[in-house]
Amino acid sequence: MELFAVPDLPEIEPGDDLAALITERVDLRPDDVVCVASTVVSKAENRVKALDDFPAGPRAREIATELASITGETKDPRFAQAVLEESTELLIEAPFLLTETRFGHVNVNAGIDRSNVAGGDLLLLPKRPDESAERLREGLVADRVVVTDTCGRPFRHGQRGVAIGWAGTPASRDWRGERDRDGRELTATVESVVDELAAASNLVAGEGAGGTPVVVVRDFAFGDHQGSDELFREIDDDLVRQAIREWRFRG
Rank of each mutant, 00 (worst) to 15 (best):
A44P: 02
D237G: 10
H105P: 01
A68S: 15
N202V: 03
V41H: 05
R184I: 10
D27W: 02
R241Q: 12
T65Y: 08
P213E: 13
G152S: 05
L9Y: 05
T71I: 11
L98C: 03
I22A: 06
D174I: 02
G152W: 03
R153M: 10
E185N: 07
A142P: 01
T99M: 04
A20G: 12
H105I: 02
D195Q: 05
P129S: 02
L98G: 09
L3S: 01
R144K: 15
R233F: 08
S87I: 05
V6Y: 06
R59D: 12
E246P: 00
K49I: 00
V204C: 00
D130N: 14
T187D: 14
P55S: 05
A80V: 10
F222S: 03
V33M: 00
V193H: 10
D27N: 09
D27A: 14
R128I: 08
V162W: 04
R248I: 07
E191K: 04
D113N: 09
G139V: 03
R102Y: 02
E85S: 06
Q81C: 03
D52Q: 03
A188C: 02
R241D: 02
T150F: 11
L203K: 12
R29F: 11
L125I: 05
A82Q: 01
K49L: 10
G111H: 01
F222G: 04
A209K: 14
H225V: 00
T99H: 06
V33Y: 07
G152H: 06
R156M: 01
V83K: 05
R114L: 15
T150V: 12
E185T: 15
T101R: 14
C151F: 02
P77L: 03
T88S: 15
V48Y: 01
S42Q: 07
A209M: 12
A80M: 15
G165N: 07
V117I: 04
T74H: 12
R144T: 14
I244L: 15
A64N: 08
P95V: 14
V48S: 04
D174T: 06
A37K: 01
R173H: 08
D238S: 11
F4S: 10
P10K: 14
A64T: 00
G119A: 07
R248Y: 09
A50Y: 11
W166D: 03
W247P: 03
H225G: 03
E100M: 05
E11D: 13
L140K: 07
G183D: 13
L28T: 09
P213D: 12
F4E: 07
F54H: 05
A243M: 14
A80W: 04
Q242K: 14
A243D: 13
K43T: 06
T150M: 04
A200N: 01
T23V: 13
T88C: 04
H225L: 12
I235M: 09
E185Y: 10
F249Y: 15
V190F: 13
L21I: 06
E191R: 07
P126S: 12
A44E: 00
I22H: 08
A163R: 00
P7M: 02
A80E: 14
M1L: 13
R61P: 00
T169V: 14
G251A: 15
I235W: 11
D32H: 10
E45H: 12
P14L: 10
G165V: 00
R102V: 03
W166A: 15
V190G: 08
G72V: 00
F249L: 09
V83A: 04
V145H: 02
P55I: 05
R160Y: 01
V204S: 01
R241H: 00
L3I: 00
F222W: 11
L140P: 04
T148E: 02
A20F: 09
